[in-house]
Structures are given as C-alpha cells and as structure tokens.
C-alpha cells in the first residue's frame, strides 16, 4: 500500500513545500468563498472576472515603472500595488458605465475586462521588446504558479485572507443590509457608496493576492463556485458565508494535494475541478435547494393534492 502512504503524507502536509502550497490554496479558498457569496447574492458574480482581467495592465505598468527607476521590475509589492490600482479603476469604470449610460451591467463588465486586458497585453508586448527586461515572471499573473509558491507569496496571501475574512465578521449586519436592500440602507443613513467601495476593495485585495496562485481565469472560479454551491445548502446568510469559506478551503486543500501527487497537472485547474465537483454535488443534493429535495417537495405537494382530490370525490 505504498500509494496510500504517499497520499496520506501529502494530505497531512508532511513535506514543507507541499505544506506551503496547500496552505496557500486553503487560505485563498477560504477568503474567496465569502466574497464570492456576496457577489453571487448581488447578482454580480462576474465582477471578479472583470476585476481580475483589469489587473494585468497594472502589473505591467508597475514592472515598467520599476525598470525605469533602475530596478529589475520584479518587486512583488510594487507589482501587487499596480495590479490593485488598475483593478480598482476597472471596478470604478464598470460602475460608471452602469450608472451613467444605458448600457447594462454585463456589457459594462465585458467592456472593462476586454479593453483593460488588451491594454495589459499591449504593455506586456512593450516589455517583451525591451532589450534587458524580461516579462517571464509576469506570466505567472495570467496562468498562476501554484506549484512554485515561495514563502513571501504565502505571507502576502495569509495577510490578505485575514483582512478579507474579518469583514463579514465585523460588518455582518451592514453588509447584509447593503446586499439585500441598498436603497433602504441609504435611507437609514448608512454610507452605502463607501460600503460598496469597501466590498470592491476587499474583492480586489483577495483577487490580487490570489492571481499568482491560480491565475486570472481560475480565480474567477474560486470566487463564484463556493458561494453558489453554499446557496444550495442553507437559507441563512451567516451559514451561507461560513459554508462558502469551508467549500473554498476544502477545494483548495484537496486540489492542491492532488496536484502534489500528480506534479504534471496544473494545480489551479485541479482545484477548480474539485470545486466544480462540489458544485455538482450541491446542485443535486443540497439540503435546501438541491434538485433532489425540490423533487421530493414537489412529489409531497402532489400527493397532498391527490389526497384532497380523493376527499372531494368520496364526499
């Protein structure tokens, strides 16, 4: 049973590198879960999509700025700041287009994601044509580099996760009202715009921190899937937030551990597929809204209806 031994070793994080990768994935999943739950509830699930694509020009600009200032462009804090800046700008543009024109949410997100990403690609093109600069490290922001995370990445990720996770705990009531009925919150005197901006800021923090780990397409899955899965199990917001964090963390743990067993397979993709399987299970067997329970409820109602019909007939 050598293989079982190996599996056990990986799942229980014996090896240092595995431990680093797996715990990063767990933290990222746990922090993305509740953020995604808020997005799903506000019907803005793909905001993460627009946001993650909008970070690319920031990464490239930060790189260029650092090279112009004489550095080698690989300073992680600078790159992350750049990513966060254009990410936030992207969110702002989506909001602006939505509020000030006839164009709807989805198209506004599409415009931001494609144009910002295009700009990012243009800037990466500049960098590639530079004699001394090399954009090699920047690719990790697009595709992720889960398997080669280093300790620094881990610290950034755990710090961000902590900040992001504190919001639903501290501001549970405020965020609930904002998401359910923002207009009413405004009448009560809550600074709705600032709360909204705070939520976007937290989203940006976790997306930027997670980009390197799973890449900018797969981070969208981390945001959407756990939140949507949790909705099938509960009708209470607090439980939904908790569950989405657990689902995210579990997908991160299992996916990253599996990829340690099969080093050739991209870890980001494995994590997403684990999450997808979790979604499929929730979709069918979720305790509150799964298809199975819906089917049972319908049958129950129909039987009740039949029983009533019988009564009428026999009378």
């Amino acid at each position: 049973m050598f293989e079982w031994q190996e599996l056990l070793e990986v799942l229980s994080l014996r090896d240092y590198n595995t431990r680093l990768v797996v715990s990063s994935a767990v933290l990222l999943g746990a922090a993305c879960g509740p953020m995604g739950a808020y997005l799903v509830l506000r019907r803005r699930s793909l905001m993460g999509d627009a946001l993650s694509h909008a970070t690319l020009p920031g990464v490239a600009l930060a790189f260029l700025a650092s090279v112009w200032l004489g550095g080698d462009g690989k300073s992680l804090p600078l790159l992350l700041c750049g990513a966060a800046l254009t990410g936030l700008l992207g969110c702002g543009v989506v909001q602006f287009i939505r509020d000030r024109t006839r164009i709807k949410d989805d198209a506004a997100m599409g415009i931001v994601l494609s144009v910002f990403f295009g700009l990012g690609v243009v800037l990466l093109g500049f960098i590639q044509s530079m004699p001394k600069g090399s954009a090699a490290g920047l690719e990790s922001f697009i595709y992720g580099k889960t398997a080669s995370m280093v300790q620094n990445d881990f610290f950034v990720l755990s710090g961000s996760a902590l900040v992001v996770l504190s919001a639903p705990v501290l501001l549970f009531k405020e965020l609930r009202l904002l998401c359910f009925d923002g207009e009413y919150a405004a009448v009560l005197g809550w600074p709705v715009k600032r709360l909204d901006a705070l939520l976007m800021l937290l989203l940006t923090v976790i997306v930027v921190a997670g980009l390197q780990a799973v890449g900018l397409v797969l981070i969208i899955a981390f945001l959407v899937i756990p939140g949507a899965s949790a909705r099938f199990w509960t009708e209470r917001l607090d439980q939904m937030l908790l569950l989405s964090a657990l689902f995210g963390a579990f997908s991160g743990w299992l996916g990253a551990a599996l990829s340690a067993l099969a080093p050739r397979l991209p870890p980001g993709a494995l994590i997403v597929l684990v999450a997808s399987v979790g979604f499929a299970l929730s979709f069918f067997f979720g305790r509150e809204r799964g298809l199975f329970i819906q089917f049972l409820r319908r049958r129950f109602l129909m039987q009740q209806g039949d029983a009533k019909d019988d009564l009428v007939c026999h009378r």
Binding site: L41, K173, E174, R176, L177, C179, F180, D181, Y184, A185, L188, G189, W190, R231, T234, E235, R236, L237, M240
Partner: peptide, 17 residues
C-alpha cells in the same frame, strides 16, 4: 435573498444600532 422575515424586520433598527 437568504434571510428570514424577522431578520428583515430587524433591519428597521439598524439605523439606531
């Protein structure tokens, strides 16, 4: 939205909380 009736009604007090 995943809230109960009582949760919604309690929102009326959020302003003074």
């Amino acid at each position: 939205f995943p809230v109960s009736v009582l949760d919604v009604v309690a929102m009326g007090a959020y302003g003074r909380l």
